[in-house]
Computed example of a mutant assay.
Amino acid sequence: MMLRMPVLSRVLVIRPGATKFDDEQRIKGSLDMPMSDQGRAQVDLLAAELADIRVKTIFAAPCESARETAERLAKGRDVRVKVIDAFKNIDHGLWHGKLLEEMRRNQPRVYRTGQESPDDLCPPGGESIRDARARVVKAIRKVVKKSREEMVAVVAPEPMASIIRSALSGEPLVNLWQAETDSATWDLVESESR
């Protein structure tokens, strides 16, 4: 019988720089938007902050802000960028473009569900958080497995970044509404798998 040793995976979960909708506190979901000037400035600071972290590939969601963030982080480094369609942000259906404050004020019950049990949320005409989690879990496992014991970098917009972080850490997703805007931040998630 062969004993399998645990493998430590280290995943850098990176949120793109802000878009105009992030600046305005609007729900962008799967809308494909470029970064705002503020978002580009955020990514420039992030690139300097992460300059000493070694990765071979930055895996990015297919949206423009995530791709541009990944390309800016890879610039001048021996790092390639690979777009992963499964990291596409959640389709928020009829919620696209709504102000977060408008959701809180006009749909208090839905807003509360997003705070207390986001996995139970499904926007009208959109994708449920539970379905998005299932979609991303397969993709993140594949990326981590291919990268073996190397650091993995994933650029995904919110709330997909929080779903990825939750799937990797095993911690529950909390407060969807706090995880709706991007501002070029990152988390390092370390976990063991057999």
Rank of each mutant, 00 (worst) to 15 (best):
V11W: 03
Q38M: 07
D85I: 08
F59E: 06
M33E: 13
K75T: 10
F21W: 14
P123A: 01
E127V: 07
K88W: 00
R104E: 15
A51K: 12
D119Y: 11
G125D: 08
V11H: 00
K75I: 04
L50A: 03
V55Y: 09
K20R: 15
E68P: 04
L46H: 01
P16R: 01
N106P: 02
A74L: 02
K82D: 12
G29A: 09
D52Q: 12
R40E: 12
I90Y: 02
L12E: 09
Q42N: 10
G39Q: 06
A48M: 10
G29L: 05
M33H: 09
D44A: 06
P34D: 13
R109I: 10
N89C: 11
E24L: 08
K56R: 14
S9L: 00
T57V: 10
L12P: 13
C122K: 13
E127G: 06
F87N: 07
F21E: 11
M33K: 13
S30I: 03
S65C: 12
V79A: 03
T113P: 00
I58W: 03
R67K: 13
C122P: 01
V55H: 02
D44K: 10
Q38I: 13
C63E: 13
D22W: 03
T113E: 06
Q38Y: 03
R109W: 00
E101A: 14
I90K: 01
C122R: 11
D37I: 06
L46F: 03
P34F: 12
R26E: 05
L94R: 15
G76F: 08
M35C: 07
A41H: 11
F87L: 15
D23E: 15
L50T: 05
L121P: 00
R26I: 04
S117P: 00
F87Q: 10
Q25A: 15
M103H: 04
D120K: 15
V81F: 14
A48L: 14
A48H: 14
